[in-house]
């Protein structure tokens, strides 16, 4: 007996960790989620670099680097532990870059990053607390402050349509063409140009195909909820479809609306930002429909050619209300709605 006891090694109890249950954990963490989104954005980034040339890469890099730098700086200033390695700042930077035209001066990228990270994120205490999508805050701030720089579109340097054997493309974005009074059907790009990315516009606005691939990947990776993009795109299609039927000369066909103007970028990558959208799936449906409605309204009647960023920001501000009114019914509770509201 004593022999066996000597050979048995008992655990050292002085270096144990105690914590609350559960003691095992899913492998996913915030960083992994952010990296998945960045990977899903990669095809669209590559497409835009291919279409607009190396300067697109410059814009993306400057935005990403300055967002990360600003995040680090502001975290430092607040005296909080640095969490840059969760990659959320990087993602914000890339999204912001995707929202800028390729001609954007590099200082504009830095200013946009400052607005996005400083105003949109760190002012609220960082990731998880921001009520508005930081990248969109950056974009809208730039759009209002520097309208001309933000709406000067370059011609695609390298057109994917060339090797698809289609027509050459135009400089202005299709939606801007629509807004201008002399919008003529002849000037409008073809559907394939929109889909493969032969039109002018900001970096993430042109190649719908790449965005779609990334977006669908995100849905299957369980990173985003399919309800938001589906409801958003569906609502836009429906509204512009009705508009097109009633006033064909004023409102472009729903297909054009769907594949132009960053609708895909917004629907899959901006409107699905976890922090600023409703928690429940029911809330996600409401959120998607709301975004779609506002976007269609601004596109059809507003001054701005593009309503995606505005409508997402407005729906971001509605998110707490949606959360409140789409509370779930807990298991075994008869009518939770009344109780939660009370």
């Amino acid at each position: 007996m004593s022999e066996t006891e000597q050979t048995v090694r008992l655990p050292d109890m002085t270096h144990l960790v105690v914590s609350s249950s559960p003691h095992i954990h899913d492998k996913d963490d915030v960083r992994a989620i952010m990296l998945k989104v960045i990977c899903a954005l990669a095809p669209a980034c590559l497409a835009s670099i291919y279409i607009f040339g190396i300067r697109a890469l410059m814009v993306l890099l400057v935005c990403a680097a300055s967002c990360v730098a600003f995040e680090a700086l502001f975290t430092r200033m607040q005296g909080r532990p640095l969490r840059v390695n969760d990659c959320s700042g990087l993602l914000t930077g890339i999204l912001l870059g995707m929202n800028l035209p390729v001609t954007a001066p590099l200082w504009l990228c830095v200013v946009g990053s400052l607005a996005a990270i400083g105003l949109g994120k760190m002012a609220y205490g960082g990731l998880g607390y921001n009520p508005f999508n930081p990248a969109l805050v950056g974009r809208v701030a730039l759009l209002i402050a520097f309208p001309s720089a933000m709406t000067t579109w370059a011609l695609p340097a390298c057109n994917p349509l060339k090797w698809l054997g289609a027509d050459a493309a135009t400089g202005a974005t299709p939606l801007a063409l629509l807004e201008s009074s002399e919008a003529e059907a002849a000037a409008m790009p073809s559907f394939s140009a929109l889909f493969w990315g032969g039109t002018g516009g900001s970096l993430g606005e042109t190649c719908a195909a790449a965005l779609l691939v990334g977006g669908i990947a995100l849905v299957f990776l369980n990173v985003i909820r399919w309800q938001i993009p589906v409801c958003l795109l569906g609502t836009v299609a429906l509204c512009t479809g009705i508009g097109h039927l009633v006033h064909p000369e004023q409102v472009a066909s729903p297909l054009l609306h769907l594949f132009s103007g960053g609708l895909f970028l917004g629907a899959f990558f901006m409107a699905t930002d976890m922090v600023t959208t409703p928690l429940s799936r029911k809330g996600a449906v409401v959120f998607g429909i709301g975004c779609g409605l506002f976007t269609s309204a601004i596109r059809m009647w507003g001054n701005y050619p593009e309503g995606m960023s505005f409508s997402i920001l407005i729906m971001n501000s509605l998110t707490p209300l949606i959360d409140r009114f789409t509370a779930r019914r807990p298991f075994g509770v008869r009518d939770a709605r009344k109780e939660v509201k009370a």
Binding site: H15, L16, V17, V18, S19, S20
Partner: peptide, 20 residues
């Protein structure tokens, strides 16, 4: 007695093995 990993608050800490 052990390293406590959890919410930094006494009320939470006593719930884990009675506090470390």
């Amino acid at each position: 007695r052990a390293f406590y990993n959890g919410v930094n608050d006494c009320l939470n800490a006593v719930l884990v093995a009675g506090g470390a």
